[in-house]
Amino acid sequence: MSATRHFQCTICGQCCYGLLPLTCKDAFANAARFPLGFVWTALRQGSKDYAMTATLGTTLTLAHRKELAVMITPTAYLPKSFPCPALGDDNRCSIHLNKPSRCRTMPFYPYRDERYQAELLKPRLGWACDTSTAAPVVFKDHQIVLRDDFDQERQALLEQAPVLRRYADYMFKYSPWLVGALTQASSQTKTRSVVTSLSSFLTATRNADAGRLARLQLPVLNDYATRTGGDAQLAEFHQNYRNWFQEMTYLSQRLDASPTCADASVRSD
């Protein structure tokens, strides 16, 4: 592996499919666009991303003095086969100027330590990234060359860590099944994840904006529930969209911050 790495995006659009991890801020700013869920991934001690995951997420103590590092990520919850709703027909981002931090930083990934970033430049199967010497140098001497986006996303992740930790404490307290599910997920060779609802996050963090966010989520969840219906491979996504639609229906009616919108928000289904 050479110390100097090249990279140029060729606008193939292939990285704009499937789950998209977001910062809390980006998730809520895009509540009218993405179906939002929380994805939990657990790492065992000894994994090279353990320290960074523990810093940005939380740790979970298990029996026999074992510990897991757990990352909790607000996520645009899309099946692998589904493009980002902001991906245009020309493979360009239709919200380029306001796109989430995650998309700006691609292909770098501040959830991992900087010294491991070179590995992320290798295009995944089907991706058409240009990593030839003709492309600009993006990584040199174990450091990212143009680092503003990376630093900003890392900073946002560090700042939101206390909120995610509060959420994790709440979930471990009230949803003990999650501990079992994460333990199981971490023992698989292929990293698996567990998904939890926006409603649980809003409750745990006492979010005063819950009603408004719920009203933004309703049409999005309804749309994705419709689009994933009847496909056995997407059954889990479909069920989650439906469940969350029910939860958001309740929240949209109960926590009403602006009375003027109250009549418009009442739905019958």
């Binding site: 409750t203 745990a204 469940n243 939860e247 958001m248 309740y250």
Partner: peptide, 15 residues
């Protein structure tokens, strides 16, 4: 009391 995820509970009662 504020920890009670009523939205989740409402779904559960229906489902």
């Amino acid at each position: 009391r504020d920890d009670f995820n009523r939205a989740d509970a409402e779904r559960v009662t229906q489902q």
